[in-house]
Design a protein around this nucleic acid. Sequence first.
DNA 1: CGGCCTAGTGTGAGCGCTCACAGATTGGCT
DNA 2: AGCCAATCTGTGAGCGCTCACACTAGGCCG
Lengths: 362, 362
Amino acid sequence: MVASGGRDSSADSVRVSGRPANIWDVAKAAGVSHQTVSRVLNDSPSVRPATRERVLVAIDELGYRRNPAARALVTRKSQTLGVVSFDTTLYGPASTLYGIEQSAREAGYFVSVASLKSIDVVSMRDALERLAEQSVDGLVVIAPLREAGDALAELRGKLPVVVVEGGSAPGLASVSVDQVDGGRLATRHLLEQGAQNVHHVSGPADWLESEGRIAGWREELAQAGLEPPELLQGAWSPSSGYAAGRELARMKDVSAVFVANDQMSLGLLRAFHEEGIRVPQDVLVAGFDDVPEAAYYTPPLTTVRQDFAQVGRRSIELLLEQIGEGPGPESHAVVPVELIVRQSSVRSSMQRQHLRSRPAKR
Amino acid sequence: MVASGGRDSSADSVRVSGRPANIWDVAKAAGVSHQTVSRVLNDSPSVRPATRERVLVAIDELGYRRNPAARALVTRKSQTLGVVSFDTTLYGPASTLYGIEQSAREAGYFVSVASLKSIDVVSMRDALERLAEQSVDGLVVIAPLREAGDALAELRGKLPVVVVEGGSAPGLASVSVDQVDGGRLATRHLLEQGAQNVHHVSGPADWLESEGRIAGWREELAQAGLEPPELLQGAWSPSSGYAAGRELARMKDVSAVFVANDQMSLGLLRAFHEEGIRVPQDVLVAGFDDVPEAAYYTPPLTTVRQDFAQVGRRSIELLLEQIGEGPGPESHAVVPVELIVRQSSVRSSMQRQHLRSRPAKR
DNA sequence: CGGCCTAGTGTGAGCGCTCACAGATTGGCT
DNA sequence: AGCCAATCTGTGAGCGCTCACACTAGGCCG
C-alpha cells in the first residue's frame, strides 16, 4: 500500500484504463454476471430491484456506455433510419427532414442523411446504396420526382421504405401532402374573390407536386365551368417566377394567378411590380408553401400551407409500422393543407371599385 | 439427384439462404480464406490480381456486403460523423448541413444529424449525448450561441469536434464566416453610396453572428469618424425586421440601414413600403446572407453573401485532421464573405435628384 | 544446394454484446 | 420437513469482422 492511498480510486467517474468500460467491467464492479448487466440495460423485468440498483451504480461510476456496434452485430438492427432527400436547402425538404429527425429521435432511432446533388436515377441509386451499406433499419425517401420511383422499386421488400411526395408507387408506403386539394383551395379562393379566370404557374413537369397542384387547379376550374388558360411552367426558383410574371404581364385577360410555390410567387410579384401591375387591385395572386417570409412579401401573400412537421411525423410512423414497431399496417398517409389568406388575393371594396373603373376584362 | 437439376443453382445473384452472405461464404465460394476476402475488401496490396478477381466475382455472385457493425466493433470506428444543429429549417444551417454532408460523403463518412428544438445548454448536452451513444467518430456542432460553448467544453479531448460559428472557444477547432468583415463591407458600401450614417438592425444578442456583424459595423463607422446610432435588435425573423422597420420609420436622420440578415430585411422593406419610405431613394438598405430570394425582393437587396458550402467543406477538413486523416493540424478556419450589390443600396443619379428635392436630411 | 528473404496466403483470437439455456435461489404449500 | 414452481441469475456460444501472427512457396544469393 502506498502512502497516500486512494489516489486512483478518487470518485472521478472517469476510468483510468485506456479502453472504455465494457459490460464485463460493470459486471465485476457490481458483483454480478455480464448477463445481468445486459438485462438491466435492456429493462428486463426479471432482475431484482436491489441488483438493478447496484448495476446502475456501477455503470455510473465507470462511465459505461453500451457499444452500439456490438449490439447491432448481434441484433442485426442498427437503430438508424436513412433519409434520402433532394436539395435539403429548400424550405420544404429541410422542414420535412427536421420533422423526421424529431420523430425518429422520439422513437429511439438515429437519422442518417444522404442528400442528392442532382435528382436522377443514378445518384438516387447511389444514395440508396450508401445507406444500405450502412445497414439502416429503414428508409425515408423524399422523392418528388416521378422517375425516383424506379430506383426505389428495386429495393422493395429488402428494406422498409416510406416515400414522401413520391406518389403512390404500388406496394410502397407513402406520405404526401394533399396537393390536389391545395390546388383546388387556392383556385376556388381566387374565383370567389372575383377572378374571371385563374392562370397557373406550375413547377417543373416531372415533379409530382407540380402535377397535383395542376390537377387541383384544373378540377376547380372545370367545376366552375371555366376553360383553363395556357399553363406557364416554372422551376420553383424566384427567377423562373419572375420570367413567368413578365410573360403574364404581356398577356390580356389575366385576373388571377395561382403560383405553385412561394419562391416563384416572389419573382412574379416583382415582375408585376416592375410592369406596374398592382396586386391585388389588378391581378390576384396565390402561392403555395407558406414560407415564413410569405407574410412579408409585397403584398403579403395568400398561400397554401403545408404541414411539413406532420409529414415527417407520419413518415416515421409508417416506417415503424413496417419495421414492426408501430400499430397496424397502413400504407398511405395524406396530410391536409390549409389556405392562408393574405392581401395578395383580397380586394377591399374600395380597391374593387378601382378595378371596375379600369378597362373591362373578359 | 433430382430430375431437373440446377434449379437452385440458377445464376440469380440472390442467395437462397435466409441470412445474408458473410465473409466466410465468400471465402468458400472463391476458394480462399476469410482473411484473403478481408484483404480484398480493404484494398490490401498483398493479394495476387488473379485471386482478387476470384474474390470479387464471388462477392458479386453472392450479393455480399460487408457488415458495418462487425467492422466497427473491431476497428472502434463507425465511419459516422455527427452533426448538431439548431433549426435546420433556416437557410444558413440548412445550407451548411448540406455542405457538410457532401464533403463527409466524399471522405467516406456517413452523417448523422441531431437538430435542437430549442437552443439551450440542456438540449445541446442531450444531443451531444445521443450522438456520443451512437459512437460517432467526430462531431460538427453548428453552435451560434455563446453559451453553446459551455456544453462543448466537457467533451473536449474525448471526441474530435469542430465548432461552426461558435467563436474561438479555446482548444476547440472552429470554422466561421468572417462576420466582422461582412459588417464592415456592408457599412462601408452604404457610406460610399452617400449615407450620412448607418443604422443597424442586429440579430439576437446572444448569437455570435450578431456580435460579429455589430463589431464590423461599429468599426467601420468609427473609421469614418461617425458615432454609431442606437442599435435595434431583432430576432432573425421577418416579423422582427418589420417591427424594426416601423421603429426606424418614426426616427429622423435615417439614411441607411444595415440589417443583420435577409429575412429581417424583407420585413423591414415591407414596413418601409407601408410607411411610404422609398428604398433606395429615401433610405439605403443592405442585408446579410444572400438567400436565393434576395434578388427578387422589392427592391432587390444588396447583401453579404456567405459561402455555406465552403463552411461545410472546411468543417469536415478540420474534423478529419483531428481524426488523423487529414493533412496538418489547423485549428481555425475563416471563410470570407462577398458583398453583392443590388438596387436597395444604389441610387441612380436620377433617383438621387429625387432625394435632393426632398427636405434636407442631416 | 542450403539458407534467407519476400510475396502471398491461412489460422486463431477477440472486439462487446445478446440469445438460449442451465443453474441457483426463494417462497408457498402440503 | 419436503417439494415444486416461480423468480432470479449465471454460462457459453456466436454474431462478422480485423488484427497479429504463422505458414508456404518461389527466387536469389553465397
